[in-house]
């Protein structure tokens, strides 16, 4: 298993850089991954990361549709917050596995 160091902490990641143990994640770590991904984290970003982590901890499957109903941001806003591939980027920054969903 690969390891990476963020904010002075060594964490376990898979070959694509996704956390294998979400418990190792902190807000400081999130800020550093976000920098790697070219995203500057605002309060709204943090709320979204919390939402995603909460869903995953409850064993739910993440979907773009779900994010649109989160009450934090609409789908268009989500694409603007994490430009490019938003779900992949957001989950990487949130320290959770890459979502296995087609929608």
């Amino acid at each position: 298993m690969a390891q990476k160091t963020y904010a002075g902490v060594t964490v376990d990641v898979n070959e694509e850089g996704y956390f294998t143990n979400p418990a190792q994640w902190t807000k400081e770590i999130a800020a550093e991954i976000a920098k790697e991904e070219g995203v500057v984290l605002t309060d709204k970003h943090m709320a979204m990361l919390d939402y995603l982590r909460d869903r995953v901890s409850k064993g739910e499957v993440l979907t773009i549709r779900g994010v649109g109903k989160s009450g934090i941001v609409d789908i268009k806003g989500f694409y603007e917050m994490f430009p490019g591939a938003p779900m992949k980027k957001a989950t990487k920054i949130a320290g959770i596995p890459k979502p296995a969903s087609c929608i």
């Binding site: 979907t63 549709r65 649109g68 789908i75 694409y79 929608i103």
Partner: peptide
């Protein structure tokens, strides 16, 4: 399976560009 209806699906696609 939480698959959206046609109009909502199209909106999701256009919302993402």
């Amino acid at each position: 399976l939480d698959i959206p209806k046609v109009d909502e699906f199209l909106e999701m696609i256009t919302a993402g560009g």
